[in-house]
Amino acid sequence: MPEDTDTILKHIQRGNLQEFEKLFRAYYPLLCHYALRFVKDTNQAEEIVQELFCQLWENRKDLKIHTSLKAYLYKATYFNSLQVLRKRGVKTQYEKYIKNNKPESSLPIDSVEEKEIYNIVQKTLANLPDRCSKIFKMSRFEGLKYQEIADKLSISVKTVEANMGKALKAFRKNLKDYVGIIVL
């Protein structure tokens, strides 16, 4: 499902700040996460991505993207991260990456850095019934046992089980086009 790179890029090139913000919000956490793989420092990763977006805006008029905007963003993040590694003098690390990872092969495939996956997860969670998403979050993010959730919310363990199943099904349904094999 390729996004309409041309349209977004055209908007940005015309100086449309709203479109630029949308792009930023959609990709910022993902690119930071991606940069973090290489630089292993959260602040540094954020700096790289912020700088990248600033440059994108500044150079928007001269920008020529032959692939997709997404591929461009990941590639630029990749190169800028390596640049940082090189400056840092982490030579072995840098050389290792250069040797083993062509930028293409290090692009995120079937991973959460894929924008669609990230968005689907967010959307699915937001669209679950309130109680269902609450139960799911307590179980998955807070690490609570079914019994603990049941006690806290004054519901039965059966209800917790039912809601957990419902959430899992919703995620599988929405992610099936992007992750794993289609079996449903």
């Binding site: 910022y28 956490p29 993902l30 930071c32 996460h33 959260t42 954020e46 991973s111 959460v112 996956i117 990230y118 997860v121 967010q122 969670l125 998955r140 993010f141 899992l168 995620f171 599988r172 992610l175 099936k176 992750v179 794993g180 094999i181 079996v183 449903l184």
Partner: peptide, 23 residues
């Protein structure tokens, strides 16, 4: 296959949450 795909889903959901919290 479904179980393994769901397991993968949960991993990704976990990651999305972490990324959201992190940045």
């Amino acid at each position: 296959e479904i179980v393994s795909a769901s397991d993968k889903d949960l991993g990704l959901i976990q990651e999305v949450n972490e990324i959201q919290q992190q940045f």
